[in-house]
Simulated scan of single mutants.
Amino acid sequence: MADKIEVGVIGLGKFGLELARNLRELGHGVTGVDSSQERVKTAKPYLTQVFEADGTDQQTLEQLSFQDFNYVVVSTGDSMEASILVVLNLQEIGVKKIWVKAMSAAHKKVLSKLGVDFVVFPEHFAAKQLAYKLATPGMLDYLSMGQDVLIKEKEVGEWKGKTLKDLNLTNNFQVQVIAIRKNGATELNFVPKANDPLQEHDILVLIGAHENLLKIS
């Protein structure tokens, strides 16, 4: 496992709590803050520490040592103003890495201008991912990396007997094979060898820009 990190989460709604739970399952420390007594009660079994407190109050954040965490995630529900205030307060007390859940494109733009390290827009990302999944048969995942990058499966089919070196997909299509599921196997073979002949029903796992993947669909 990677080195253990300590993360503060401000706002324990659906997104904040789910993130915190997943971090704990990965073995990291999570301290949560929410003004709702009910949310704090729900979160207690899962987090390292949980406090019922006002996350927009700078003194409270400082007293809870949020400035000492490796990361602080801000997920304050429906209030863009509260989210921005929390960010400003965290910057004031010297938090090193601030990640924020945005509620709109305008909110994301403001956060970027404030110098926030990472902004996530879950609804936008999920909608775009679903659109690509519906429109791109065999797609496994959508990655937001400055362009529309997908991970997609393709059966070898007409490439039977060829090797990855023969196909030269990187140079010909700007697409990379990151794994192969051999004929009938359940496990993926990651970083496959370039000189092994492919079988007709092998499944290639490809990563690349959407437009490039379409060329070899």
Score class of each variant (00 low, 15 high):
residue 52 E to G: 01
residue 30 V to Y: 04
residue 215 K to F: 03
residue 138 G to W: 01
residue 59 Q to G: 15
residue 117 D to Y: 10
residue 63 Q to V: 02
residue 79 S to K: 11
residue 34 D to V: 01
residue 74 V to K: 06
residue 173 F to T: 02
residue 71 Y to W: 14
residue 95 V to T: 03
residue 145 M to G: 07
residue 170 T to N: 12
residue 53 A to I: 11
residue 154 K to M: 06
residue 46 Y to E: 02
residue 186 T to E: 14
residue 145 M to A: 15
residue 53 A to C: 09
residue 33 V to R: 02
residue 50 V to Q: 14
residue 139 M to C: 00
residue 86 V to E: 09
residue 171 N to G: 12
residue 2 A to G: 03
residue 81 E to T: 08
residue 201 H to L: 09
residue 193 K to Y: 06
residue 174 Q to E: 09
residue 95 V to A: 00
residue 149 V to A: 11
residue 166 D to H: 12
residue 6 E to S: 15
residue 75 S to A: 14
residue 106 A to N: 13
residue 156 V to S: 06
residue 134 L to G: 13
residue 6 E to I: 15
residue 41 K to I: 09
residue 96 K to F: 10
residue 208 G to A: 07
residue 83 S to E: 09
residue 52 E to Q: 09
residue 84 I to Q: 08
residue 156 V to H: 08
residue 202 D to S: 03
residue 116 V to C: 03
residue 165 K to M: 09
residue 121 F to I: 04
residue 38 E to V: 12
residue 11 G to S: 05
residue 134 L to W: 10
residue 214 L to V: 07
residue 2 A to M: 09
residue 151 I to R: 05
residue 128 K to I: 08
residue 210 H to K: 13
residue 21 R to L: 03
residue 215 K to H: 04
residue 191 V to F: 14
residue 44 K to Y: 07
residue 106 A to Y: 11
residue 83 S to V: 07
residue 56 T to R: 08
residue 180 I to P: 04
residue 87 V to K: 00
residue 167 L to V: 08
residue 159 W to T: 01
residue 5 I to F: 06
residue 60 T to P: 04
residue 170 T to E: 13
residue 121 F to M: 08
residue 106 A to R: 13
